[in-house]
Design a protein around this nucleic acid. Structure first.
Length: 461
RNA sequence: UCCCCUGUAGCUCAGCUGGUAGAGCGGGUGGCUGUUAACCACCAAGUCGUUGGUUCGAGUCCAACCGGGGGAGCCA
């Protein structure tokens, strides 16, 4: 038994081969039947030919339709026609599972992504979703390799968290209390002391705070796990459940953090271009023309690095009429990010040193007292793909920032201990895995780059 | 959550200022000895998202609801 990917690299010397998989398309004439077999090992199908089939084989071939699963044996031969170098001249065929064409939802034609989303259990059988699965796999592997080569430790931060104020968005509650009649306190609010954890608990929105703990002991760590946001957001770049990569590095400032983020993205894209070339060529041709050229430029050139203040200047001096007014102190809107990445710099841009008021409490306060050492990596089409910062390492400054942000110091006692004992400058960032996949493939909707998307009012499959 | 667009055959869509539905693909049958978006011929297939309203008459106009898509905000 050989996988199609290997089969296609063999030289055709009439050797006997067996393959199995799912039939993508069949074409036949009176004495000649062609079908193409795909087993997910690569984008390409292998063409199978039956010439003058025996009556038994003909009966089986009649049951072969798009979507059927088959095992086929034959000899690998040079193909006389264009379209493929080699093909299997079939001698034996087993139809493992039929796919009746009048009810099988996938036809041998192009389907819209909207339709395929409704049949997410079958969409990995299409070219696009097979390619996405392989790209996700390649990127995941490369992410681990990148960090492992640099002596980062993979740490497993918790999925369930009790800190409800990480400030990264609405959270999903985790509870074993009965939803119809939860216990109430004397004031009428829900009493969580009897809940599973004895306190309110949620699904994590970030592993960062926990990662900092390990970075401040083991020097350099990363997490790669699922993350949950209960935001009621309905866009092409948000999910309620997504995968995030969060490196955290001790003795590292904002500049070292930017270097890491940039090396990381370029490493991943370079690896993908090299090791998923067939799939990437497909995305270039069918999904986003020009994609490969764009990615090659990103791999080969340094990212632009500007401060928030410089970004504001670039926007105000552009003469462009934006829907949202540009002023120092206001957050950058989508249209501003798009303008910077797509028109001013035509590539990834790292923006640093944002006003303290629009960023999280844990970001290191700059000497000017007005800005923090935040960094966002913005890319064309998507906007923010990475958000990170140098963390505030000074105890009293951090305590002041927590209070400024209206948070309760006591909730962060363990986080503050990191500054109380052996504090070090450290920095890190979060990369949204699905956004990376979107960027790398040119896919428009984030729901099409994750196998089973979870979004508002959407959790089937 | 807000704004805009959209819902007609299995899929993708057309259907003008209201007169009870059409194309391509897909499917079925037949033909074809090298196809590869196969080709040729024929055939079948629709409670026009749901409910209500206007009208002699609604796929078409109006309202509400439901589903889908895009944009914004929030962010990764």
């Amino acid at each position: 038994m050989r996988r199609v990917r290997d089969l296609l690299t063999l030289s055709a010397e009439s050797q006997t081969v067996t393959a199995r998989g799912w039939v993508r398309t069949k074409r036949d004439s009176k004495h000649l039947v062609f079908f193409e077999l795909n087993d997910g090992s690569c984008l390409s199908n292998v063409q199978v030919v039956f010439e003058n089939p025996t009556p038994e084989a003909a009966a089986d071939l009649a049951r072969v339709q798009t979507g059927a699963s088959v095992v086929v044996s034959g000899t690998l031969e040079p193909s006389p026609a264009r379209g493929q170098k080699t093909e299997i001249h079939g001698t034996a065929l087993t139809v493992v599972g039929e796919a009746p064409a009048d009810v099988y939802p996938l036809q041998k034609k192009r389907h819209s992504f909207e339709y395929l989303r409704e049949i997410a259990h079958l969409r990995p059988r299409t070219n696009t979703f097979g390619a996405i699965a392989r790209v996700r796999n390649q990127l995941s592997f490369a992410i681990h390799r990148f960090f492992q080569e640099r002596n980062f430790l993979y740490v497993h931060t918790p999925i369930i968290t009790a800190s409800d104020a990480e400030g990264a968005g609405e959270m999903f509650r985790v509870t074993t209390l009965p939803p119809d009649a939860p216990p109430k306190s004397e004031f009428g609010d829900v009493d969580f002391s009897g809940d599973f954890f004895g306190r309110p608990a949620y699904l994590t929105v970030s592993g960062q705070l926990n990662a900092e703990i390990y970075a401040c002991a083991l020097d350099r760590v990363y997490t790669f796990g699922p993350t949950f946001r209960a935001e009621n957001s309905n866009t092409t770049r948000h999910l309620a459940e997504f995968w995030m990569i969060e490196p955290e590095v001790a003795f590292c400032d904002i500049h070292c953090n930017m270097d890491l983020a940039e090396d990381f993205l370029r490493y991943l894209l370079s690896d993908l271009l090299q090791n998923c070339s067939e799939d990437m060529e497909f995305f270039n041709q069918r999904i986003q023309p020009g994609l490969l050229d764009t990615l090659r430029v990103v791999v080969d050139s340094a990212f632009h690095r500007i401060s928030y203040t410089q970004a504001i200047e670039a926007l105000t001096s552009s003469g462009r009429d934006f829907e949202f007014p540009v002023s120092w102190g206001a957050d950058l809107q989508s249209e501003h990010e798009k303008f910077l990445t797509e028109e001013v710099y035509r590539g990834p841009v790292i923006v640093t040193d944002y006003p303290r008021e629009i960023k999280a409490f844990y970001m290191k306060l700059n000497d000017d007292g007005r800005t923090v050492r935040a960094m966002d990596v913005l890319v064309p089409r998507l906007g923010e793909i990475i958000g990170g910062s140098e963390r505030e390492a000074d105890l009293s400054t951090l305590e002041r920032r927590i209070e400024e942000c209206g948070l309760n110091r006591d909730d962060y006692w363990w986080y503050l201990d990191l500054r109380r004992f052996g504090s070090v400058p450290h920095a890190g960032f979060g990369l949204g895995f699905e956004r990376l996949v979107q960027y790398a493939t040119g896919m428009q909707n984030i729901r099409d780059v994750i196998p089973f998307p979870r979004a508002v009012r959407s959790a089937e499959f």
